[in-house]
């Protein structure tokens, strides 16, 4: 995967899941992905270090595209495109 530039990604929705820990961010991502159209991207923020490992697995299992992770200040920003 090439370097992800968050400035180039138009996220239709930002989910701030920094207040919750595993498996909270997964459930919040699941809820959010249903609110955007197919082809649109959501951005998930999580302070739980396990989320950046879990979210790509979640996306693969439920059939969406995980674009990548960008480190924020004390949290991770992850981008997922709705595929179906």
């Amino acid at each position: 995967m090439s370097e992800l530039n968050p400035a180039e990604i138009q996220a239709a929705k930002v989910v701030d899941a920094r207040g919750s820990a595993c498996p909270g961010p997964l459930l919040e991502a699941k809820k959010a992905i249903g609110t955007v159209s197919v082809g649109q991207t959501i951005e998930v923020w999580s302070g739980d270090p396990s989320t950046k490992n879990d979210l790509p697995k979640w996306a693969a299992k439920v059939g969406h595209e995980f674009l990548g992770t960008v480190a924020g200040e004390g949290y991770d920003r992850m981008f997922i495109t709705r595929k179906k």
Binding site: C22, P23, L26, L27, K30, D54, W58, K61, V62
Partner: peptide, 11 residues
């Protein structure tokens, strides 16, 4: 509950 809610996220 941790695994179960995770499983729910994975449909």
């Amino acid at each position: 509950f941790m695994l179960g809610c995770g499983a729910q996220a994975l449909d």
